[in-house]
Design a protein around this nucleic acid. Sequence first.
DNA 1: ATTAGACGCGCCGGGTTT
DNA 2: CAGGAAACCCGGCGCGTC
Length: 355
Amino acid sequence: MTEPGWWILHVDMDQFIAAVEIRRRPELRGLPVVVGGSGDPQQARQVVATASYEAREYGVRSGMPLRTAYRKLPDAVYLPSDPATYEAASAEVMDTLRTFPVIVEVWGWDECFVGARTDDPERLAADLRAAVLAATGLTCSIGIGDNKTRAKLATGFAKPGPSQRAGDGGTYRLTAANWAEVMDHRPVRDLWGIGARMSQNLEELGLRTVADLAAADLETLQQRFGPRMGTWYLALGRGLGDTEVTDVPREPVSRSHEMTYPEDLSDPAEIQAKVRAMAVALTDEVVADDRWIQRVHVKVRFTSFYTPIKSRKLPAPTQDPEVVADAALTVLAKFEFRRPVRLLGVRAEFAPPPD
DNA sequence: ATTAGACGCGCCGGGTTT
DNA sequence: CAGGAAACCCGGCGCGTC
């Protein structure tokens, strides 16, 4: 499957967002830090982006409502999210990794796959970690694997546990050699790509552990989840996965804006005005990026949390904000407004580049 | 020529994960 | 009480072609 000496490393920054905030305010080191929303933990409809390890010990998790975090931990330091700063810090990290003779495939702000030819992947991982720390002051954990699935999962085992207070990660190797031993007894939920929903579905088929999934019947899986996903899940149970690492960034296929409003919206004219403004702003960004819009999606979340999405293909690709806004309003008219609205979103799908 | 069915494809709504 | 962004997959439906 892979040539000998070719390894895949998964680099994952430790508590990335919190670490970046602590880096610029060193007096916060050692304190529970919670980053998210506007930074006001009493304001409704905001969630935790990242909590420092100290805050996690009190049960604060990313995705949790900020007000829930505040109830658990009123004494934590609450900071607003500052995406531009995280973006810049991320670039510092990736640039540092690129100084090595490796291929770096970026996977979001705080993680990437590194493809490398080496006889000593642990040594390489240690060198990468040291270089990142020296250049950026940030620590990371590194998973070593014979494919992306295993490398990504290995990172989880490399992460600092509750026992290691310092928050400094390590490395861990997961390959065909120890896959079964390490993973067999674990719930399928631990696999990368199986969330709460799929885990439930698999449970209904009597598949609870990774070993169960690895030994499952392909036809059964395909019948229930479709030809592609069925095949994919079985492979996942066996720890199989992609071995290609590429440094060619993927062309984005779409761009979107969505917003949960502090107060519910009920006035149709106001809802339309918000969607129109969002569509215009989105189009401006897309045009600045020199892309053309082919399809427009509108997302509405009602107070019941019911969140349908509807869309419309444009007669021809466009860069005209008014055309996009009109399309968005046409799509908006397809919704039935029985309850107030808490979120509105617009997504622009790009036409393939003329190239 | 008409009909039934197979097939591919685009459109669209919905689901799931990270 | 429940953010924002992006990707991928599936299935139903309608349409045109063979």
